[in-house]
Simulated scan of single mutants.
Amino acid sequence: MDPQELRVIANRIRRRDVTAVYEAGAGHVGGEMSVTDLLTALYFNTMKVDPAAPLDPARDRLVLSKGHTALALYIVLSEKGFIAKDEISTFLEHRSRLNGHPNRVKVPGVETNTGPLGHGLPVAVGMAKAAKLDRASWRTFVITGDGEMQEGSNWEAIMAGAHFSLDNLTLIIDHNRLQQGARLADTNNIAPFAPKLEAFGWAVEEIDGHDMEAICRALSADAVTPGRPKCIVAHTNKGHGISFMSDNVAWHHKVPNEEQYRQAMAELEEAIR
C-alpha cells in the first residue's frame, strides 16, 4: 500500500478506537493514538501474516509489549481480518475475549500475553533466536513504550539480542515522552535512546513515528544491518490527531465525555479530508 492508503486506514482505526473507549467507559486512548501509525504500517505494509492461518510457522511476529494499548491492536487485527469488525463493540464487556491486555489464547493474531511492562522484548528475543536456530526467514517486531524502557529486563534482552546477532529482530520504541501520570523527563529520564542502544551493539534509526513513508522505510527488510538487531526510535505524540489529547499526560488512562468525544471524532474526520 502507498503511504496515503495507510494514512486512511490509520485514521479509521483511530476513530474506531475513540468510539470503543467512549462506549466501554475505559481504555488507554492516549497511547493508542501514538502507536496506531506504527501498527498500521506493520500489518498492512511490512509483516507477512495471513488471517486465514494465524499460526503459520512462516509468519512474521509482533509483540505489543505496551499491552495496555491492546484496543489499538484489536482494531488493527479486525481491519486485517483476524477477528470480526463488529466484535470491537464487546471491548471490556463481561466474558468478552477483548480484554484490557492482549491474550494469545483467546484472540487470533496475538502472539503473546502482555501487560506487565518489560516482558515483551525478552519474549521477542527468544522468538528471534528460535528463528535463527531453525534457519527460518521470518522476522520478529516488538513495540515498547518509552517509560517501559526503564525496566531492567529490557536492557538484559538488549544485551542478549546483540550477543546473538539477531538481525531478524526489530525493536520499536513508541517515544511519546509521557508515561502514566508524568513525563518521562520527570520520572527516570533514560532518553536519548539512540546512543544507549548503539553502545549495546544495535543498529538504531530515529524517525517521525507519524510519518508513514519514514515508518515503512525504517521497517523494510532492506533497512536491516546484517548481524545487528535494529531499534527504531519513533518520535510520537500521545493523543496524536486530537488537539486536546495531544501531548497531554492526563490522557494516558482517561475517557472522553460526550462533548470531548464529538470534538475528537470531528477532528479525526477532518484530518483525512
Rank of each mutant, 00 (worst) to 15 (best):
N11I: 08
R15Q: 14
V29A: 13
S34F: 05
T36P: 00
L42H: 01
T46V: 12
M47G: 03
D50T: 03
P51K: 06
D60I: 02
L62M: 07
V63Y: 04
S65Y: 03
G67K: 03
H68I: 03
S78L: 02
E79P: 01
F91V: 04
F91C: 04
S96I: 08
N99M: 13
N99D: 12
G100S: 01
P102C: 09
P102D: 06
K106C: 04
V107W: 02
G109C: 06
G109I: 04
E111V: 10
L117N: 08
L117M: 13
I143T: 09
G152F: 11
G152T: 11
S153P: 02
I158H: 03
I158C: 12
M159C: 12
A160D: 11
F164K: 08
D167A: 13
I173Q: 01
R177L: 13
R183W: 14
T187E: 08
A194G: 02
K196W: 09
E198Y: 07
V204Y: 00
E205I: 14
E206T: 15
C216Y: 06
R217S: 14
R217P: 04
A223N: 12
T225F: 10
P226H: 07
K230P: 05
H235W: 14
K238W: 03
K238N: 10
S243I: 00
V249Q: 14
V249K: 13
K254Q: 14
N257W: 02
E259F: 03
Q260F: 01
R262E: 15
R262W: 06
